[in-house]
Design a protein around this nucleic acid. Structure first.
Ligand SMILES: [Mn+2]
Ligand SMILES: [Mn+2]
Ligand SMILES: [Mn+2]
Ligand SMILES: [Mn+2]
Lengths: 218, 218
DNA sequence: GTTGATAATAAGGTCAGCCATAATATTATT
DNA sequence: AATAATATTATGGCTGACCTTATTATCAAC
């Protein structure tokens, strides 16, 4: 039933697509940006993935995961987030680093190891970055929230998840206490898509809008 | 101090060299065999490793690790054997499979993760296959034993380690109870390098000499 | 509709690690 | 010393995943 092992690159493209959009097509340029690759390279790779039936690319309309591709992406996310739990809860690795480390381990993890890890961790529902961990069948409840960048001024919201992946960005947010579970008051939004002023844990914090997009709140 | 990340292939060549011989040069052909690669390919790779100063190749005399290469190999072995401990002791993965799974994880493990894992496991000294786990500085006490294939008929020995790597070989030995810690009586050795007849856990077992070479006993 | 931005293709390269086949070189044995 | 086995090198190829620099399509906005 399960095919030959996929390359790390393939798994990362599929995962990036899953993270960028639940279902709507993603522009190849956005995918390229996310993966730190030129648009031409991403285009080539998307073609290869299309030929393998993992992705469907309609020129000028974007790329979307096929059912097969979505299943694999879910599986990669499952591995990644289970490892994040282990690294954070059991190895006491710094929160800002767990994504990076888990992102390496995820590609080196056999199905037996994934499932044994899930048992060891007692089947956690979310990872320390706040994202849901897909079940073995690929199902999971999507987060029911919106980016902090779209929250109304004056409101008080709760951070659900932090979707940044770069370690330095995560460190920056961690230092400002913008972490899953924290209450955040939106004090002010500068005009012309300027930065937000927030109050978190009693302290005022100024946060650029592009960073605020990574923070999912309710 | 630590350089750019090495490829999985590079790490595997270095590890194979460390496993094949503590210090004496190894024939390129043996290395090729161990890695499942043609001798020509191994030769090319050995050249690249030589240029990087990880290995020293004297044509017709074999390859040996340099100090730098040996340090890296020790580090890979450390990662591998720590993962073996985790997989066996905490994830309850079948003994015969832990090598294979750890052999993937070892290349995806950052130094911080390695050390945190060592702490989590309480700094184990040996892995479930019986081999010593190198310290952070690369030091470890080599096993003081000899291959079962060289044990005297009539003697009773204790298995110290099983150095096989192929899962099917490990499974074969596991099924016959040839595991670290077990007492083994050498009942008979067939002539012309024929198989050994052993008594393990009360049962008689016939074991080919080439398999017996994998078992280190005292 | 024309135009400017964006997306996609085409074309030609690089690099690591593999492969096969053929030619040499060395070592070991007789 | 000749010879057979083994090791090494020389060539030439391949694949996946990247790159740069054009060129060409398409879409969206005026
Ligand atoms: Mn990854
Ligand atoms: Mn390995
Ligand atoms: Mn081309
Ligand atoms: Mn060549």
């Amino acid at each position: 039933m399960n095919e030959k092992p996929l390359s790390e690159s393939t798994e990362m493209y599929l995962k990036a697509l899953a993270e960028l959009s639940a279902r709507e097509p993603v522009a190849v340029a956005r995918l390229a940006e996310r993966l730190g690759v030129t648009p031409v390279s991403a285009n080539e790779m998307v073609h290869r993935l299309d030929e393998q039936g993992l992705v469907s690319h309609k020129p000028y309309k974007g790329v979307a995961l096929t059912k097969k591709g979505r299943e694999i992406a879910s599986d990669v996310l499952r591995r990644q987030r289970l490892w994040e739990c282990f690294l954070f809860d059991h190895l006491n690795i710094e929160w800002a680093q767990i994504y990076e480390f888990a992102c390496s381990l995820e590609h080196a993890t056999a199905p037996e190891v994934t499932e044994a890890l899930a048992v060891f961790l007692n089947h956690p529902k979310t990872c320390p970055r706040g994202n849901p961990i897909p079940e073995q069948d690929g199902s999971f409840e999507p987060l029911n929230g919106a980016p902090l960048s779209e929250a109304e001024v004056g409101s008080v919201v709760t951070a659900l998840a932090v979707n940044a992946t770069a370690t330095d960005v995560l460190k920056y947010l961690q230092e400002r206490n913008i972490l899953p579970g924290r209450e955040i008051e939106i004090v002010e939004a500068a005009p012309m898509r300027g930065p937000l002023t927030l109050r978190v844990e009693g302290k005022e914090v100024v946060l650029g809008l592009s960073l605020a997009e990574f923070v999912i709140v309710k």
